[in-house]
Design a protein around this nucleic acid. Structure first.
Lengths: 334, 334
DNA sequence: CGAATTGTTGCAACCGGTTGCAAGATTCAA
DNA sequence: TTGAATCTTGCAACCGGTTGCAACAATTCG
């Protein structure tokens, strides 16, 4: 069925090595031989088998891409960029969906069986033991959106969530809000924990107590909406810092549903700056996470690790910034 | 570094065949031998190399997953389901991002080099020559969201877009709209062409001319918004059938932006029923495409083709249905 | 108990490439 | 023109598994 090295060699009248060499970067072949081989290969429609090559070279050019949040629109950008950059660099992503997987160990086994050259884990909700397990197995690992310094031997690319929490508290304070609540993502996520910590510590510095602290079950519109309904049933707050734009939009619709106007009656500050935050039905003021930069850096890093050309392993957290839109009252004129 | 068959065999005191057999389904090994091998394998942390196995068996258990629309939220569900179902069945998805790829031929080569066992193409915007190229190469192909009957040898799983177009025209007509426009997705998409055809033919049967026909450049909120702005600058219409919910939401916001109330001043009918269509800020009445069913069927089909256990190759288009929400005036009481 | 049947095992060839090595062919400088 | 240096080429071993085959062991049956 498929054409092999041997057939090309026979047709071109050369050895198998010669054929192999014409198809490997930087091997020594004369122009004459190369031409003969090319011709024969073209006529036969030959493509080298990467499977066979992998076996011989011990390199697969396969990168495992592990994620567990396939329902959040942020991940569209994540997948788009990851796959695109990887394939530009001649690698291919092998996707692992951990949404329902109870046992990360099993996924690890699968990836190991495919002998992936490297792994990118894109999540802020998995325990750090997970990336660590790979690194211990000797596979280059980059943890995108992870928590810094949590596990030795694992490169983390992401933001400083503690700082983001502080930034959120400060931003809301600066605009004159005093009754401030936090509606976080899942409590088990390290990102949630860190943002909460930063949020609380800054609030304390400013002499404030949080008006309410609660968490959505997952990163979804409906989880945000439910949580907000519950909050509104209990108390009223001036402003809310949400752990994710999606959650925030759900919360906004819950507030509007009970007759509130935004930002007159209540302020909202989101997180991520996903596309939809800019939609005029929401026009959400939010903290932008540089997803693009994080992904580009993650891919670059994992490829460097694979090629062993690591240049700057000292990964710094990326900065976040406020994107001003219409869900917070303006800064008081000073 | 990695443990191989040979080492396990030596430690267990058996031949390499025996080890291989304990790890292959349905091979003949005695309980005693299997136990010895298991023990040795566990102690050494051995996992068979799927690369080597693939070379010998000529099966990779890799399924190519080709898509070119990574920015539309519908694809979150697509990716989630595809990856999940595949891995439940013991296959792995090898992702190909065709968003920017100008030359599909190149992607084909890449997939062929990895010797994928099958391919799922999830798009309604690629020319049918693309799936056909794979099928000609002898690789099982399923074209999800494709056009039926367009290419021999390619299994298509999807909906009947002509019927959907008819359904849209009929729905709007039934609600008393007479000045009806279509705002389609990219004109090059077969789905757009088919829906347009159905839409026009039904309108004609009903004795109506379309009030306006235009197309968004891509499946995005902003493309929908821009197109709607342009439309509003030229004329006014009573109702709009959009080729995608995202486009529709953009169009809705454009209408609202020029002071219109929905559904009082203008009606909107979307397509897909993505999650966001249910958000209260839009509450979009839309035509539901059974994405889940399409994907489940696609995966089942491609796996059957790989295993050569094809059961029902006569794939019928799935039905679409109207999801009633709040962007169309109600049916007149009859 | 012996013959026939069925189950288990190891040998060796093979899957489709890569690569170190040594020999042969070229090129270059003197 | 010749010898040294550099290229090019084929051989053969190897990557880590699978599998047909034949030999042998265990079981079943008359």
């Amino acid at each position: 069925m498929t054409v092999t090295l041997k057939e090309v060699a026979e047709r071109a009248g050369v050895s198998r090595s010669a054929v192999s060499r014409t198809f490997t970067e930087g091997a020594s072949v004369s122009a004459k031989t190369r031409e003969k081989v090319q011709k024969a290969a073209d006529e036969l429609g030959y493509r080298p088998s990467l499977i066979a090559r992998s076996l011989a070279t011990n390199r697969t050019r396969l990168i495992g891409l592990v994620a567990n949040n396939f329902r959040n629109p942020v991940f569209l950008e994540v997948f788009d960029l990851f796959t695109r950059v990887l394939q530009e660099r001649g690698f291919r992503p092998l996707l692992v969906n951990l949404s329902t997987e109870t046992d990360p160990q099993k996924s690890l086994e699968m990836l190991k069986q495919y002998r992936v050259d490297g792994i990118i884990i894109a999540t802020s909700t998995l325990p750090p033991t997970f990336p660590h397990a790979f690194s211990k197995a000797g596979v280059p690992v980059v943890h995108a959106f992870g928590r810094f310094g949590s596990e030795a031997g694992v490169h983390v690319v992401g933001i400083d969530n503690v700082r983001c929490g502080e930034m959120a508290a400060q931003t809301l304070f600066d605009r004159g809000y005093r009754s401030i609540a936090l509606l976080g993502g899942p409590q088990s996520a390290t990102s949630t924990q860190d943002r909460l910590a930063g949020f609380l510590s800054r609030l304390k510095e400013l002499g404030l107590e949080p008006a309410d602290i609660r968490f959505a079950d997952n990163y979804s519109y409906s989880a945000g909406k439910e949580a907000m309904k519950a909050l509104l049933a209990e108390k009223s707050v001036e402003a809310l810092f949400c752990g994710d734009d999606l959650i925030c939009m759900g919360a906004m619709d819950a507030a509007r549903g009970s007759g509130m106007k935004i930002p007159q009656d209540i302020g909202f500050l989101g997180f991520n700056d996903m596309n939809m935050a800019g939609w005029s039905a929401y026009d959400l003021t939010t903290i932008r996470q540089p997803v693009r930069d994080i992904i580009l850096k993650s891919v670059t890093l994992v490829i460097e690790m694979v090629d062993d050309t690591e240049q700057d392993a000292d990964t710094q957290p990326f900065d976040c910034s406020i994107v001003e839109r219409g869900t917070l009252r303006p800064l008081p004129a000073s």
